[in-house]
Structures are given as C-alpha cells and as structure tokens.
C-alpha cells in the first residue's frame, strides 16, 4: 500500500514540486499546506504515515510534542533521525527538510522517501540561488551604470576609464565591483546632501 504523506511547507512553489515528485514515485500525498491553523486536528483527520516538514516551519515544536500526547493521535510520531541510519540528519538539516513518521515504520521505506524530499529541497534551493544571483547581477549592472555616470560627470572620464576606476577600486579593496559602485554612489549622495 502506498505511504500516505503529509507536506507542511511555507514555500508554495517548493511544496508543489515535492508533491509532484512524490506522486511520480508512487506515494499518496494526503495533505499539503503552507500554514496549518489547527495542525493536531488536521493530522488526526488525514492520518498520514509520514509528515515532511520544512525545517523553518514553526510547527515542528508542535509535532515534537505529539509523542507525549498520543491520545490525540493513536499513532505515535517520531522524528525520522531516530530510526534512520543511511541518511544523516546533517544532510537533511542542510537541505532544510525534516520529517516525522509513524513509529515502527521500516527504515528502508523512510529512507526512500527522504531521498526524494532531500533531492527536491536541494534542487529548489539551487534554483532559488540561481534566481538570486541573476537578480543581484542585474542589480549590480544598474549600480555600475549609475556609478560610471557619476564618475564621468564629476571627473570628466570616458565610460571606459570610469569602468577601469571601479574595477581597480574593487580589486584594491577585495570587494565586488557592484559593491565598489555602491560606495561611489553613496559618497556622491553624501556630497550632494552636504553641499
């Protein structure tokens, strides 16, 4: 019988990706949510075998208390790390995912599902990093253009000269060129503000 999986993740995009991957691997996703109002009630309703939780979810503390209030939920829940030997908790924490399972589930079945979750979380993180890098590159581009404009106007430099000055500043101070551009802009703003 397919394992019943519940997903709790504040990130809607990531939860959608993970859900698809789990379905493709033959799991049954019984609930997914970004914000859980009454988590305990919801868990009692859907009776999942596994709950996969975003590491940054505040609901984790509630999940950890379930072992001690097991009459709310006849199936006691434990954190995966207790029974898992193949997947280290370090890997999961770094990927940003944690899981709670019904006590007594075989480590093999759990490892398979954790592998899917960790892989998807990592993939999502890589995508997000890439997006942020692109964003910051665009942002840098704009800053550099603005700083070049300032240098050209104030010092009468050509565009090429202005760029070389920025590049040298960045190399001398061991900072990114975008950062050097930001400094030039701040200084110019200060001077304008002060005059």
């Amino acid at each position: 019988m397919a394992l019943r999986v519940m997903l709790i993740d504040q990130n809607r995009g990531r939860v959608a990706i993970l859900e698809q991957a789990l379905l493709d691997n033959g799991y049954e996703v019984v609930a997914r949510s970004s914000v859980e109002e009454d988590l305990l009630q919801r868990i009692a309703q859907v009776a999942p075998d596994v709950i996969i939780v975003d590491m940054e979810s505040p609901d984790r503390d509630t999940l950890e208390s379930m072992r001690s209030i097991s009459r709310d939920q006849p199936r006691p829940i434990v954190m995966f790390a207790e029974k898992s030997d193949r997947i280290s908790i370090g890997e999961a924490v770094k990927a940003g995912v944690s899981a709670y399972v019904v006590d007594g589930m075989s480590p093999g079945r759990l490892n398979a599902i954790m592998e899917v979750a960790i892989a998807r979380f990592r993939e999502f993180q890589a995508l997000r990093n890439e997006l942020e890098e692109t964003k910051s590159r665009l942002e840098d581009r704009k800053l550099i253009d603005k700083a070049k404009g300032i240098l050209m106007k104030q010092k009468g430099m050509s565009e090429d000269e202005a760029y070389k000055v920025l590049r040298k500043m960045a190399m001398d101070r061991n900072i990114k060129i975008g950062e050097a551009a930001r400094n030039v802009i701040i200084v110019a703003d200060l001077l304008v503000g002060g005059s």
Partner: peptide
Amino acid sequence: EASWASVRDKVAVGE
C-alpha cells in the same frame, strides 16, 4: 530560528 526543534537540530549538526 523558527522552532526549538530547529535550534536543537542545527546546533547538533553544526549549522
């Protein structure tokens, strides 16, 4: 951090 569980796990693994 968002939860005490997260505090424990991240300290435990050195994050």
